[in-house]
Design a protein around this nucleic acid. Structure first.
Lengths: 141, 141
DNA sequence: ACATACCTGACTAAAATGGTCAAGTTTAGA
DNA sequence: TCTAAACTTGACCATTTTAGTCAGGTATGT
């Protein structure tokens, strides 16, 4: 059971973005330098964030990204879902060998894993970008 | 972010064990058949459970495993830790490029990931094997 | 026109996952 | 005492995921 970097990078990048966008779009290059994340990797991540309407982009010189919504409206669950980092409970085998078949006799752990999933998602639904900004208010500009 | 099968298997096997041990040790072969988990894989898992004093073993014919403690004393966190399925937050890079160095300027997500870890562990600390037995009381013997 | 910055897709090395396989050792019971 | 059941150990492996890199684009402000 592991929490991977992709989601963490996405969150870091968006916090960075939230602190610097206000008026002008922020280029990935800047975020890359400030956060120490590879530019190419950031592009992959922002492509997904854009598809999920979390950020908007402007092309060309002076282009970059801005948030689509206010930080308080962006929940961490939105971000993590966008980059495919949603919590995935291991699937019980479809062709029920012995245990879980989704029907009458669910395997013992079925409900447990569902509960955990809910538990974690609740956590991420409550936290917004805004919450993270508060903890990290050593602004640079 | 994914929850893997190893932990799930461990929990399934122990619930099975809790239901059938009482007097005689239960063989992995039986568990394997009932739960549809490969015998060889179960051996790997039980080797770890034994090292962590969650089960005891008896060798030879009629041998098998029994729980070391009462189901209510065995928390899910114990089980998952034993099979190396503890929650692992992605490490922030040691050689702080820009972000987290553990010192003054922790990366923005540092606290967040710690919080989540606590959140999940709390969940597993509360649940015991006993709790799972209740939900699944269609005994066979 | 040209540098900046977004955009897209293919590719890859390394690690984790979910096992299998082989070769034991121990012990109950015939 | 022999043997089969059951635990024990460690090596091995195919597949998938992760965390990127690389190589090309396309759009646009100056």
């Amino acid at each position: 059971m592991k929490l991977t970097s992709k989601g963490r990078y996405a969150v870091m990048a968006l916090v960075d973005l939230a602190r610097f966008d206000t008026i002008n779009p922020v280029s990935l290059r800047d975020i890359s330098l400030r956060q120490g994340i590879s530019l190419d990797y950031l592009e992959q991540i922002f492509s997904k964030l854009k598809k999920n309407q979390i950020v908007k982009s402007t092309r060309g010189t002076q282009g970059g990204y801005i948030l689509s919504k206010k930080p308080i409206e962006i929940k961490l669950s939105n971000i993590l879902n966008a980059v495919d980092e949603k919590v995935k409970t291991v699937q019980c085998k479809k062709e029920s060998k012995k245990g879980c078949n989704g029907k009458a006799t669910k395997c013992v752990t079925h409900n447990l894993w569902d509960e955990l999933e809910t538990h974690i998602n609740t956590f991420f639904d409550k936290k917004s970008l805004q919450d993270l900004l508060k903890n990290n208010s050593e602004r640079v500009n």
